[in-house]
Computed example of a mutant assay.
Amino acid sequence: MLVLLPPSETKADGGKGPPLDLAALSFPALNPVRAKLADALADLARDVPASLAALGISARQSEEVTRNARLWSSPTMPALSRYTGVLYDALDVRGFTKAGLAKAQRRLAVTSSLFGVVSATDPIPAYRLSGGNTVPGLGTVRGLWKPVLEPVLREIDGLVVDLRSGTYSAFAKLRPDAVTVRVVTEDAHGNRTTVSHFNKAYKGRLAAVLATTRAEPSTVEQLIRVIAKAGITVERTGEHALELVTGD
């Protein structure tokens, strides 16, 4: 089973790993686009106003441009530790047991504007690039990734659980049998609406359950049993579609 997570805008500083080495990353077929994007971002960082405009950030976030300037020289850390924010707080990797962490490292992957997709243990630097950005001279991030990322993701064996956000789902379609999860809330009348504010937190909790379970689900039915056993309400709404029902 592979659980595909969205990235986060916020990322941890520092790291103890050596500088970025694309050869150390999973999914090597993506390396040509990774190199092209990393070089473009580092070059763009020489012009701070242009970088701010391209990245869609304000002058108060100029440290993000500095991160991009140091893409090839700054220290790295495992992707699962690099990404922060609501989803990753709820995932709470630091709270995993040693056995749970080993499973999570094997089962989790993160979509990325810069790297396409990375495995949990891939060593990456801090950077700034969003899914909706356009890189001068290269075009939209989505347009760059779609032709190369889609065939790579479609080759993943076994059960795939898609927890990507809409922005990153547009990077590449998965196989038709990939399981999608929609977080909804149900009112007293049984009406359901998509959860927005707490969507990331619920997906983080779900990812934690799937990452650490002793089971090895290979079908939708087995997946539902694992989730239900953890006390999370989930319903099947299609052959490969689930709704996680909250009471918020």
Rank of each mutant, 00 (worst) to 15 (best):
G204V: 09
A178T: 13
V141I: 15
D187T: 03
T219C: 03
H197C: 01
A188H: 03
S165A: 15
H197I: 09
V118W: 03
F115L: 14
A215F: 04
T193Q: 10
L144D: 02
V179T: 12
G166V: 13
F198Y: 15
S218W: 00
A126W: 02
D162T: 13
A211K: 08
R142G: 15
P123C: 11
T219Y: 06
V141D: 06
P176D: 15
P176L: 12
G137N: 03
L153I: 13
E155P: 00
V117G: 04
F198Q: 08
P147Q: 09
V160F: 12
G204W: 10
T121M: 10
G158H: 09
A211D: 05
G143M: 06
V160H: 11
L138K: 06
Y202C: 00
G143C: 03
V135K: 09
V183K: 07
Y127V: 04
S196N: 14
A208T: 06
L159A: 11
P123V: 12
V184A: 12
S119E: 14
L210C: 10
N191S: 09
T167A: 14
S119I: 00
G190A: 09
L206I: 08
P125R: 10
T212Q: 14
A207K: 08
G190Y: 10
D122V: 05
Y202S: 01
A178D: 10
G143T: 08
E155D: 15
